[in-house]
Design a protein around this nucleic acid. Structure first.
Lengths: 238, 238
DNA sequence: GTGGTTTCTTGCTGCAGATCAATGCGGCCG
DNA sequence: CGGCCGCATTGATCTGCAGCAAGAAACCAC
């Protein structure tokens, strides 16, 4: 991993506190951790691992086209299990940190063994895979058919589900933007300028507000309208 | 399944001739087929099954937004194994036939059993899943960052890999458009008119030609340029 | 603190693709 | 054989986002 440092070793107990992994048998987790490494990544670092558990932060799979065009194919947040073993041709996608992150890199064989020993782990993994494939389909629908305004509303709801973001405001009435405008733009297939303008439109429509003194904090004022918008309703119809 | 008819039963031998399934042990396949139904679907039919092997034709997962906007989230072709069991919320996607198709609907439990008995089947399934997730990522990159011209070039290469299409011209120097313009458009996130115009541009650029007397047949004239275009090179740079 | 760098916002302009509308083409059925 | 219906094409116009550039704000290192 580029420019990444190995952080203080993590013990099974603290991983246990991470919501999605809390029901895994303590011993299985411990064995798995024995083959793992805790890694701290800073924004911009590339991460060269096939399998990882993201503890907190934000990662993305990045692809570059000619003319400097860049796409973020998918986003990962705290609690996600990332498994890129299936990735076809190499060079087609790089895993990069979009925010300062803490993650656990796992050994493929150790994971396979742990799954065999603890059926609950297998179930958790499967559930995560299903969740991620669902997110992927949602994302395709966003990219194929939605306006920038709708895409932004959609991604704001996505952020609202991120545990890191939730932790700051469990009520869910506000969120801190977890990644840069540029990265949101590359994820949504639009330009940062368009994000700015779309945020302004959401404000003047009374759906959101920005917190004074915290420009990067978004307050949700009208969640039902936002939801309709995110689902592809015409803004004039809401 | 709407408006679908059960076709004459298929025997293991004929499924065996389908390329991706040819290395599966004959007995495993036979057991699996015992729990299956061969179904013929016409263009437009909705298919209500979680698991199917597509024999020939074209299927797509369709989503509808408000304002009549429609997205084809993914496309399947002859030889594909379709497994929608993981599909999250229902109503979010429907499996529909985009061309007259012949498929084998499978029983989930029988498939699981067959996988346990024949490791090769499991390997084949995994390979297919990896292939499809790769296609999905390619598709996201297309939607997020490519121009309509590039998207069209990209989907033409995708069609060129379809066995049905290949069967007509094994050399791969031409193809019959396997699905309607409207469906291609909904898959690429553009309008049918734009497809027409993009095809014309590819013609005047000398990359393709249409066969006389067969308007729907595309002849590839300059595959390297097409490939560069599909990969996101600027058309002026090719 | 201060200076420099990166990120975000705002204004202006141009153009690619959507939209609307008309025509062309082909298959199918009476 | 002729008429109809669905699909594809072509043309003309409109609009929303990209592109570019300047300025403001936030962030970082020192």
């Amino acid at each position: 991993m580029d420019d990444m440092s190995i952080a203080a070793p993590l013990d099974a107990v603290s991983v246990h506190e991470l919501e999605p992994w809390s029901d895994i048998d303590h011993e299985s987790l411990k064995a798995l951790l024995a083959s793992s490494a805790v890694v701290r990544a800073r924004r911009g670092d590339q991460i060269r691992t096939d399998i990882a558990i993201l503890f907190y932060g934000a990662l993305g799979v990045e692809r570059s086209l000619f003319n400097g065009r860049r796409v973020l194919v998918s986003l990962f947040h705290g609690g996600d299990l990332i498994d890129l073993r299936r990735e076809e041709r190499p060079r087609q996608g790089r895993l990069v940190a979009l925010a300062d992150s803490l993650l656990l890199t796992l050994d493929a064989e150790a994971l396979d063994r742990a799954v065999q020993e603890d059926p609950k782990l297998g179930k958790t993994l499967l559930h995560h895979a299903a969740d991620q494939s669902g997110r992927t389909r949602d994302h395709i629908a966003d990219l194929a058919a939605k306006t920038p305004l709708e895409r932004l509303a959609s991604v704001l709801f996505e952020f609202r589900r991120w545990p890191d973001v939730l932790a700051i405001d469990p009520g869910g009435e506000s969120l801190m933007m977890p990644i840069l405008r540029k990265d949101i733009a590359d994820y949504l297939g639009i330009k940062p300028e368009t994000i700015s303008r779309a945020l302004k439109r959401l404000q003047s429509a009374g759906m959101i507000a920005t917190a004074r003194e915290q420009a990067n904090r978004i307050l949700f004022l009208d969640i039902p309208s936002m939801r309709r918008l995110a689902n592809g309703a015409n803004p004039r119809e809401t």
